[in-house]
């Protein structure tokens, strides 16, 4: 076991793959000379050179599409989109090409491509740099959507992504890059579609992914003081979704709260809530609760931003209302 930050765990997974597979290249804005906006690719240019660590123009549609074509042509590209906010510029390539090429051409070719991007709010970056739209990608058949919350998962999930033959949307959290955690040694993988029980409990299931896992854990501590034992589930991947793990937990606790930083209306949490009621209706002692972002573009001013994001106290309130 080694303790490391999420950014270093991600870099480890990329680097070790580049060492064994010449076809792996990394493309993105300021990933080379600058070292990556969040430092994930630092040092890779020096080690692997500019042919394999390619600084791109600010041209998201162009270089994401180039990554797709390169994957079809036999490379194993990792494309970094600096933040999820800029992925909107590449949405045509991701939705119309990456997700559909395998299917609409009758399965003749696949797109083994990893598209990494940083997501999330809470750092006072304002309306255009604070999106949490993981659910948009999870809506698209043909994509797989990965949202690690800790260093061990980041490395294990990225290793799995390299061995998948499909376009992977790998979403990291801007606020968590420096978070340190134990990472197992050796060749371990975290499979897609396998959620993690981050804390065991018997009375209520709190479901989150990425940043919201930590809010769930914080709430679980508070609730324990009130003698409510919360189980926390970290989804790890949104698509495929580990419905079994969620259902198993809710059948045990009979209560569920879904927590997400994205907007509530039409959000991914609504999908999770729907799955829960479809599969555990008779086991539920209360309606499934959702705690999510307020329906506003993200304001800059600090207290307003805080108010726009889901809080631990909202989760605690939601749970209390169930008992």
């Amino acid at each position: 076991m080694a303790e490391m930050a999420i950014r270093d765990a991600l870099r480890d997974a990329i680097r070790e793959r580049m060492l064994v597979d010449e076809r792996v290249i990394v493309m993105g804005e300021d990933i080379g000379a600058y070292g990556g906006s969040y430092g994930v690719t630092r040092g890779l240019l020096e080690e692997f050179g500019p042919e394999r660590i390619r600084d791109t123009p600010i041209s998201e549609l162009g270089f994401v599409g180039t990554g797709i074509g390169a994957a079809v042509g036999g490379l194993r590209p990792v494309v970094e989109i600096m933040t999820i906010n800029f992925s909107f510029l590449a949405m045509d390539q991701i939705v119309n090409n990456a997700s559909k090429i395998h299917y609409m051409f009758g399965g003749q070719v696949s797109v083994p491509l990893i598209i990494r991007m940083a997501s999330g709010a809470g750092l006072s970056t304002g309306a255009q740099h604070s999106h949490s739209v993981e659910g948009w990608f999870a809506h698209i058949p043909g994509l797989k959507v990965v949202c690690p919350s800790n260093a061990a998962d980041a490395k294990g999930l990225l290793r799995t992504a390299f061995e998948d033959g499909n376009p992977i949307i790998f979403i990291e959290n801007t606020a968590l890059y420096s978070l340190r955690g134990e990472v197992p040694d050796g060749d371990y993988h975290v499979p897609f579609g396998q959620a993690r029980v981050a804390r065991e409990g018997t009375d209520v299931t709190l479901i989150g992914y990425s940043g919201s896992v930590y809010q769930a854990l914080g709430c679980a501590d508070q609730l324990a003081e009130e003698d409510i034992q919360a189980e926390v589930i970290d989804l790890r991947t949104l698509r495929p979704l580990d419905t079994d793990a969620v259902v198993k937990s809710v059948k045990k606790t009979n209560h569920a709260v879904v927590i997400e930083h994205a907007w509530r209306f039409g959000g991914f949490g609504a999908e999770v809530a729907a799955q829960i009621q479809e599969h555990t209706f008779d086991d539920l002692d209360a309606p499934v609760a959702r705690v999510a972002g307020v329906e506003v573009p993200m304001p800059y001013s600090f207290e307003l931003e805080k108010a726009a994001l889901p809080s631990e106290s909202q989760v605690v309130e939601a749970v209390r209302a169930m008992f």
Partner: peptide, 15 residues
């Protein structure tokens, strides 16, 4: 062929 075969997958995609 919505998805290409992936040996490490443990369940069908899409929940």
């Amino acid at each position: 062929h919505v998805y290409a075969p992936s040996p490490l997958d443990v369940r069908p995609p899409g929940g």
